[in-house]
Design a binder for these strands. Structure first.
Lengths: 127, 127
DNA sequence: TCGCTATATCGTTGATCGGCGATTAACGCT
DNA sequence: AGCGTTAATCGCCGATCAACGATATAGCGA
């Protein structure tokens, strides 16, 4: 009652109890962080969306679509590739980039993991 | 046929055509990037999961739960707060942290935006 | 073979991150 | 008022990012 943040009075130790808080899939934290890191730059989000808009690969004209130098775009593509979200395939002098659907699905699943555990959906945590 | 990356022969200009590629919500790229940036570090993912596991706020014992110094955890919490995913509420000398459900939903929605536009769900982009 | 085009890589520079210890600020309690 | 607790902030450091220009690499075509 003294605080309106937690319904079970978090200010004293009754809320922040001694439960070990064994996170179910804590090792996946790094996996999710890696995917999130790939999207942690607006340019990479735009590139990914560009690759999604086009049905498949968009070769190198990404550079023409963005206000960045070719080397910079190449760096971003490298990061996207390292995260696994994007795969590149050489086809002649060009390179086809397209989104790895499985990796995208995995990332979405990991993001979906971030769900508040609530007994009833009505009770807002109030803070 | 020369490349197996795109079904519509991306190596020449027929695939990478001149369509302006008006991204529907390109301005949202920065918004998504900001959320992704908040999750781009394993420690922050763990903190967020910690906050989700506990029903609401977890005060400062996050420090005890993680192998990091208090100042470091505070920095991560600051980043999470700046992204909007987490809100902090002062209750006495302690601070209640809990996840902003709306922001979390917004982030999930933005992540859900990243969907390949496909005519039929069967045709894999082959690369 | 010789260029031409398209990517990738290198090297540099400035900015930022992530970590820490130490200090400061805010609050409750005696 | 003074003390203890909690959290935020301040420097400081090494490491990394993001951007660029310049250079190297790889195919294709004439």
């Amino acid at each position: 009652m003294t605080d309106d943040c937690c319904e079970n009075d978090c200010a004293d130790s009754s809320c922040c109890d001694e439960s070990p808080v064994l996170l179910p899939d804590d090792d996946r934290a790094e996996e999710l962080a890696m995917y999130a890191w790939a999207l942690a730059h607006p340019a990479r989000v735009r590139i990914l969306r560009l690759l999604l808009t086009r049905k498949s690969c968009v070769c190198g004209e990404i550079v023409g679509e963005m206000p960045l130098a070719q080397s910079t775009v190449s760096q971003h593509l490298k990061i996207l590739k390292e995260s696994g979200l994007v795969k590149g395939e050489v086809s002649g002098p060009k390179v086809c980039y397209c989104v790895d659907r499985n990796a995208l699905a995995t990332m979405k699943k990991l993001v979906g993991t971030l769900t508040p555990v609530l007994s009833s959906p009505e009770e807002e945590p109030a803070c």
